[in-house]
C-alpha cells in the first residue's frame, strides 16, 4: 500500500468494531476512499453497511478501531466531521410534517447559513431536484422518489466534501433511480467524494470507482468492479439435452470450478463461477465429453457482479483465495 502515502483519503478507517449486545455488526472494517472517488459498500442486509455509515457520520461511536473523515477523527473531532459531510438515506431523513422548503431552510439554519443565504440555497436545490412545484407541500405527501430527492438536497446544502448515501435508491422505481444516479454523477464531476451503500450490484457497477464487498462486518474483497470480475475468473454455463443429465454436468462443473453449481431444471441449465483463469472453453467441452454428458450448449463468459457476490457469500472457503 505505497499509494497510501501519496493519496489523500477522504475516508480512512482501520479495524472498526461495533457490537450491539451479542451481535457483532462490524468485526474490524478497513476502508480507504481516495478523495474525489466513489466507493460502493456492497453487501446483503445485515452485512454491516449501515452500521459503517453510522460510525463514519458520528451517529454511533465505535467499540474499537478508528476512522477519519475529511481528515478529522470521527470520535474526537465530531463537529469538524459534521461540517464536512452530507448524509442521505436510511441513516438520515427529513421531517415529514414540514414542507420541502421548510425542511431545507431548517437544515440550512442549523448548518449556520442564516437569512437570505439559506433561503436562496434552498430555492436553488428545490429547482435542481425538480421539487419547486411541490416545495410548499408537507414532505409526508411526497412520493418515494421525491422524498429521496429532498433527502439528497438536504445533504447538499453546504456542498459537503464527503457525501454518504445509505441505500439511496432502495425501493425506488427505475426512473427515480436514474435521477438519483445522474445527480450522483454530477456531484462526483464537481469533486465530491461519495461513499454509498447498496444491495444492488448494478448500482455499484454504475456509480462506484471502487467496490468493497462487505460480509459479516468485514471487507471481504476490495477492487474496481472490473478487477473483481477479472479476479473471479469466468462463469461457465452448460445446457444439457435431458433434465436427468443435470446432476452429472453439475458434478463436472463442481470438480472444475470448486464452486457449488446453480441448477435450473426448467431450462436444463447448470452454471458455476470459476476462479481459475486457465479454464478455457475447449477444456470445459473436453471434460464434459469425457464424462459423457450430452450437452446442447456450453458457454464461458465474464461473471456479473451478482454472480461474484453469490460466490463470495455462499462459499466461505473461496474467501481465502480472494483476499490477497
Amino acid at each position: 500500500m505505497v499509494s497510501r502515502m501519496t493519496t489523500t483519503y477522504a475516508v480512512l478507517s482501520e479495524g472498526l468494531v461495533k457490537r450491539f449486545g451479542a451481535v457483532h455488526a462490524l468485526r474490524g472494517l478497513d476502508l480507504a476512499v481516495a478523495e474525489g472517488t466513489v466507493c460502493g459498500l456492497l453487501g446483503p442486509n445485515g452485512a454491516g453497511k449501515t452500521t459503517a455509515v453510522r460510525l463514519l457520520t458520528t451517529l454511533l461511536a465505535p467499540d474499537a478501531g478508528s476512522a477519519r473523515v475529511a481528515g478529522h477523527d470521527v470520535v474526537r473531532e465530531q463537529d469538524a466531521v459534521r461540517r464536512a459531510i452530507g448524509v442521505t438515506g436510511q441513516s438520515a431523513s427529513v421531517d415529514v410534517e414540514l414542507t420541502g422548503r421548510q425542511n431545507l431552510r431548517l437544515f440550512a439554519k442549523l448548518h449556520g447559513m442564516r437569512g437570505a443565504a439559506g433561503r436562496e440555497r434552498a430555492a436553488e436545490l428545490l429547482e435542481r431536484f425538480d421539487l419547486a412545484d411541490a416545495a410548499d407541500r408537507a414532505a409526508g405527501t411526497y412520493s418515494g422518489g421525491m422524498r429521496r430527492r429532498l433527502d439528497l438536497a438536504a445533504s447538499l446544502l453546504t456542498r459537503p466534501r464527503v457525501l454518504f448515501l445509505d441505500e439511496p435508491t432502495t425501493g425506488l422505481d427505475p426512473a427515480s433511480r436514474n435521477r438519483i444516479w445522474s445527480a450522483v454523477h454530477e456531484l462526483t464531476a464537481e469533486g465530491t467524494t461519495v461513499l454509498l451503500t447498496t444491495q444492488y450490484l448494478e448500482e455499484a457497477d454504475r456509480l462506484a470507482d471502487h467496490v468493497v464487498l462487505v460480509d459479516q462486518g468485514r471487507a471481504a474483497v476490495t477492487g474496481t468492479p472490473a478487477e473483481l470480475k477479472a479476479r473471479i475468473g469466468s462463469y461457465a454455463q452448460v445446457v444439457v439435452a435431458d433434465e436427468d443429465d443435470l446432476p452429472q454436468a453439475a458434478s463436472v462443473l463442481d470438480q472444475l470450478t470448486g464452486a457449488r453449481p446453480q441448477l435450473d431444471t426448467a431450462t436444463r441449465t447448470v452454471g458455476a463461477v470459476s476462479m481459475d483463469p486457465t479454464l478455457t472453453l475447449p477444456r470445459l467441452v473436453r471434460e464434459l465429453d469425457g464424462a459423457a454428458v450430452p450437452i446442447l450448449d456450453v458457454s464461458l463468459r465474464p461473471p456479473t457482479l451478482d454472480e461474484v457476490f453469490l460466490r463470495l457469500t455462499t462459499a466461505a472457503d473461496s474467501r481465502k483465495e480472494l483476499v490477497t
Partner: peptide, 17 residues
C-alpha cells in the same frame, strides 16, 4: 424514532437545541 433526528445529529449544531 424518525430519521429526521439522525439528520439533526449529523449537523454541526448545538446538542441541546
Amino acid at each position: 424514532h424518525r430519521g429526521v433526528m439522525d439528520r439533526l445529529r449529523t449537523l454541526p449544531m448545538s446538542r441541546a437545541a
